[in-house]
Design a protein around this nucleic acid. Sequence first.
DNA 1: CTGAACTGTCGTCAATTTTA
DNA 2: TAAAATTGACGACAGTTCAG
Length: 305
Amino acid sequence: MESMVEENGSAVDPLSAGSQSGDAAPAIATSVQSLNRTQQQTHHLVASTSIVQLTLPTSGATQVQSVIQPNQQSVIQTATNIQPVAISKGNVILVSKPNSVIQTAQASLQTLQVVETGSDDSFSDSEESPEQRGGILTRRPSYKKILNDLGGGEITDGRLPPLESSSECDSNVDSEVSSHSLHYQTVIPAGTIQIATQGEGVPGLHTLTMSNAATAGGAIVQYAQGQDTQFFVPAYTGHGVVVEDAARKRELRLLKNRQAARECRRKKKEYIKCLENRVAILENRNQTLIEELKSLKQLCEPKTD
DNA sequence: CTGAACTGTCGTCAATTTTA
DNA sequence: TAAAATTGACGACAGTTCAG
């Protein structure tokens, strides 16, 4: 592996030429394929600030501060009151977090070789083909799990009260789930069916009035009619024993799966937006480091006159 | 204007993973 | 371990773009 700085420095921005469809953040021009490359390098970051002790062969123990933010690569920098570390090019620092950038307070950027020590490759699935994974077709983890592993990129769950995503993963994906949710109520015992439309009140809500007498337990006889015209009427025998009507079960399964598919697509969009945001942040940082390196090189150049 | 190509969304199925 | 949840894949459909 080359040094982080050199690696980033040589990287021509591969993302700037891309274009996204309309609902993507306009400032972020990228592609998901490119995102995966970034994602592969940044696993399991923890939203915390920690002090890391680095032992350098030439300078002894040095304290540096690791600024690790959610969904971002770690940036390790010395605190302002700590003596800058002189790190000659070629030194190898073992850092458990890959792609860390170590810089001093005086902005004297050091070139490092960052060696990934952990065997944690739990995130390598997004780039590998099934063949690379040993020829086994494995399902990718859920978007929720992926972002949880990334730390901080929690996908909002439609079933929970409205949550704001993290700043990097903020999303304007409309929550269509709530507006499409169907609500069922137990109304009356089962029996013969009357259909009445409630003119006022909830639009599209119909009630099936089952006027059989005898009894038996409540029946779910109300259904909402929105974009999806759905029935949810359990079948009853005369003894009140629920007969699992195959058609009804199928309807219920389809309904649930329909909603699940919507939710899944919403999460997917949010996941992609989150990755796009990360790319934007990382590109920004990369550009900053490149410029910083340039200026430092100019400073270090021997004067010719 | 029209038809083809393209794109986005949706519902469904099925395979897989997660949960109780 | 069964049920529930998740998600990739597929086809259908509607809207948009563009060349002819």
